[in-house]
């Protein structure tokens, strides 16, 4: 499976993502934001970081960069596009995903492990995933997902909510919501579910000694579903 990770000025999880993808057998290439086109890929990843210093709004400047047109074309043709953290913010700013990531409710930068519940498995990312809860890592200042009531209803009606923050036992409430996101939302799909944006970082959970391996499950699952 061929993948491309797009690097923006200020991306800082691009190399972690490269390491993770290659570890599980993706043929990964790095693509600079100023390039006109993306090499043939089965998966495009927008990595985490602080593209353009988070100027104006997180992800807003990156969403207008040269390479984005190719990403949008690829997404609209059904290609898999994964946005992690700042990548999720970029996807909402391009309009490929609904809503926006606002500043965390308590104005703090959050860096911690969290549990997320997989809400939908009828898609190429989570189909046949052996776990329902994943332990992943978050590190963000703007992860407070917000959308209009109509958009939320449409997300729910089409099972577009991908993952939600929860406790170790799966409880979803205010206490297990780190950033104030509406309905504990940690990640969403577009309608066709080929685009996934989420705040948690699977690429930080790929080593059994350092972190835990729930991120490994995520990447292996994408590969298994592609075969």
């Amino acid at each position: 499976m061929r993948s491309s990770v797009i690097i923006f000025p200020g991306s800082n999880c691009d190399r972690d993502m490269d390491v993770a993808l290659k570890k599980f057998g993706f043929k990964n290439q790095m693509v600079w934001h100023n390039d006109q086109s993306i090499p043939k890929s089965d998966l495009i990843v927008l990595p985490g970081g602080f593209s353009y210093g988070d100027y104006l709004r997180c992800g807003s400047i990156a969403s207008k960069s040269k390479i984005i047109k190719s990403v949008i074309d690829f997404a609209n043709s059904g290609g898999l596009v994964l946005g992690i953290c700042n990548g999720f913010q970029i996807l909402t700013e391009t309009g490929l995903l609904n809503g926006i990531l606002q500043q965390n409710k308590f104005l703090n930068f959050i860096c911690s492990n969290v549990y997320v519940k997989v809400k939908d498995k009828q898609n190429k990312y989570f189909k046949d995933l052996k776990k329902d809860l994943l332990e992943l890592h978050i590190a963000h200042n703007e992860g407070n997902y917000f959308c209009s009531d109509d958009e939320l209803k449409s997300l729910e009606d089409n099972s577009q909510i991908a993952v939600t923050y929860c406790g170790v036992d799966g409880t979803e409430n205010e206490k297990t919501n780190p950033n104030g996101a509406i309905k504990n939302i940690a990640g969403i799909f577009n309608k066709n579910k080929n685009i996934l944006g989420m705040m948690p970082h699977p690429e930080r959970m790929i080593d059994k000694y350092l972190s835990g391996e729930d991120g490994s499950l995520f990447f292996k699952n994408i590969l298994d579903n592609f075969k």
Binding site: L56, R57, S60, T92, I100, Q102, F146, C147, S148
Partner: peptide, 8 residues
């Protein structure tokens, strides 16, 4: 197109 995000 850029300066405001009309969602919020």
């Amino acid at each position: 197109k850029l300066l405001a995000n009309l969602v919020i």
